[in-house]
Design a protein around this nucleic acid. Structure first.
Length: 240
DNA sequence: AACCAGGACGTGA
DNA sequence: TCACGTCATGGT
């Protein structure tokens, strides 16, 4: 691995974030062992520091489901949808396939965009079954309607432990503020920037994305973005 | 009461 | 390629 200024900055940011917030416990899994029902998973995962997840294909499916439901949606709303599916004993690909589309829409309604997401989920259930436990390629996931760049990478990284770095709008805001990219930089450019400057480490990728989200929720949610962000003082690339 | 949330798709330049 | 409109509930 070439030692670049970007590499130094990316690792500097990571260590600062980890020191500040600690392990995040992503991806939140509703049906994990010894769950704490009071923990919402809004700002933290349910099991920080426990890297034994996912532990079953049930978990893998639940993570993918959450990844679709959380598209442009707050996790607390996704959690309501997941809990309703669980109450209906339908938190599995097999069960959802048996559900009437309109019933599914009502169950996931709290997560918003329920008309399109219900169809996306139906699509994914068929896709998931066809995998028969194998790990999907990124291209195959992207061919599934409703799965774009971020959702595909989230599924691969958190459900299948594949070293795919996840980019989201929060990541873009932070990277722009720190001078790592231009405004509205493309998804793939940022993904490549991270993957070419960081060691190919699944645990690192998992924590890094979760930490960026945690940090962004604190400093990059309302405009103007990045006010009082302590990160640049420590990690911003020095200007000439 | 506007504004935002762990995006993706379809459309038209 | 790329900018833009659309999809929708729930919290602040």
């Amino acid at each position: 691995m070439k030692i670049t200024p970007e590499r130094k900055q990316l690792y500097g940011m990571y260590h600062w974030l980890m020191d500040a917030y600690g392990p995040q416990g992503w991806w939140p899994i509703l049906s994990h062992q010894g769950k704490n029902p009071t923990m919402t998973g809004d700002f933290k995962g349910y099991h920080p520091g426990d890297y034994s997840y996912p532990q079953s294909s049930t978990h893998q499916f639940e993570i993918a489901l959450g990844a679709i439901l959380t598209q442009n949606t707050a996790w607390r709303n996704v959690e309501k949808a997941l809990l309703q599916l669980q109450s209906a004993r339908s938190l599995s690909a097999k069960k959802i396939k048996q559900l009437d589309i309109n019933t599914l829409k009502q169950l996931i309604r709290p997560a918003g965009y329920y008309n399109q997401k219900a169809q996306y989920i139906k699509n994914y259930c068929d896709f998931f079954s066809s995998l028969k436990g194998s790990v999907p390629t990124r291209a195959l996931l992207l061919s599934c309607k409703g799965i774009g760049n971020e959702t595909a990478d989230s599924i691969l990284l958190y459900a299948y432990s594949q070293p795919e770095f996840v980019i989201d709008t929060y990541t873009k805001r932070i990277f722009f503020a720190l001078g790592l990219c231009k405004q509205d930089e493309s998804y793939m450019t940022l993904k490549t920037l991270c993957e070419q400057n960081l060691d190919k480490d699944v645990q690192l990728y998992q924590e890094y994305h979760a930490l960026l989200v945690e940090h962004a929720k604190r400093y990059y949610s309302k405009k103007p973005y990045g006010v009082d962000d302590p990160l640049p003082v420590h990690c911003k690339k020095k200007l000439l």
